[in-house]
Design a binder for these strands. Structure first.
Lengths: 196, 196
DNA sequence: AGTAAAACCGACTGATGGTCGGTAATTACC
DNA sequence: GGTAATTACCGACCATCAGTCGGTTTTACT
């Protein structure tokens, strides 16, 4: 019954899998549509039948990778108790994950380059950044930090985290760097904490 | 005497000027080398005689724009007295300038896309970010904030500022948004200030 | 003037994103 | 079950554009 749908799904997934591997290892610019088609054992026309442009393929890959990563982070953060502590733990996980080659390549390097900063920021914020405003609101509600407009502050912190992730990704001693930035981030967030 | 040098400089500048205008208005991808050559009233070969690649042209433009902007910011910041206050004022100027179309296009959109995040971050940090570590060191020296590793904290703040600038650039009511983010940034920095 | 070197020219090439007319598989309808 | 319509897929072809290269003009030096 759903034969056609299955067929479509299978091809689509083959393309996406191939694309993710290629984008992750060689980067967006160095990956051609012919490469993707060949790697997915499909003709170029098929790729264009499923995705309008090369950017569209990338966007789909980006979305998938982000989705996977955010799920991972959620699992980590859920283990913490304090809202601020969860924020910090999640951040550290984000560092560690994006520091690993392929994911960092897709999310931090090519992401903004291909999608455009605005769109990238928007999507990234939608996936990861949504957690920060929520955490801040909760923290204010709980009286942990001073009441103030949430959005601007959240944006600043997201920028800080992202920048740190990139800096991390570019360093040899990732573990150490991650710890360093996590500590700095913690001190920044803790500075906001009101004296009880 | 320096006729040859003058000739070279004039052509080079014509190319750079044309490129800056085109990159600023249409963006990097939508600007072709032929466009640049034509706009500079020069043959394509001449452009390649002066710059090895299209990226090289962009890098030169980027450098120039950054240099100009940083000089402007310096002038603004110098007017302030407190180190932290100067940091905040400079930040606000950065917001305002990058929010204006062409400069934002070059520095915030295409910059990372073309040069690659790592290189962009490095250059951007070199131009703008260098000020933050210096300001933080000074602030620690003066006992305004707690002593701690400077580099990680500076990186976080730079990321926060950049993110805010981008967010600003994407909004219609730039003045209002700039003020909002500046206030949030101020509260973040002020949170670090030690009680006297 | 004569020669060397540097600046400049613009037709050409190679690579690649995207198109399009056609074929094969699947589904809908009688 | 046959046939028409729809959907998936194919791969040769096209347009664009970064970058090349042999040739020409302008400048510098003797």
């Amino acid at each position: 019954m759903a034969k056609q749908a299955e067929r479509r799904a299978a091809t689509s997934e083959a393309i996406l899998t191939a694309a993710q591997r290629l984008f992750g290892t060689h980067g967006f610019a160095a990956t051609t549509m012919d490469d993707i088609a060949e790697s997915a054992s499909v003709a170029k026309g098929a790729v264009y039948h499923h995705f309008k442009t090369k950017e569209a393929v990338f966007a789909a890959v980006f979305d998938q990778v982000s989705r996977d990563l955010v799920a991972e982070i959620d699992r980590t953060a859920r283990a913490e108790k304090d809202v601020l502590a969860a924020l910090i733990a999640g951040t550290q996980h984000y560092f560690a994950a994006t520091a690993k080659g392929p994911i960092g390549q897709i999310i931090l390097r090519d992401g903004p380059a291909v999608l455009g900063w605005e769109r990238w920021r928007e999507i990234d914020a939608q996936h990861f950044g949504g957690k920060i405003p929520r955490a801040l609101s909760a923290a204010m509600e709980a009286g942990l930090i001073a009441r103030q407009p949430v959005e601007p502050l959240a944006r600043l912190l997201l920028g800080a985290v992202t920048e740190a992730a990139v800096a991390c990704a570019g360093r040899a001693d990732i573990a150490r760097a991650g710890a360093e930035y996590a500590r700095a981030f913690k001190s920044l967030v803790e500075a906001l904490r009101l004296p009880t």
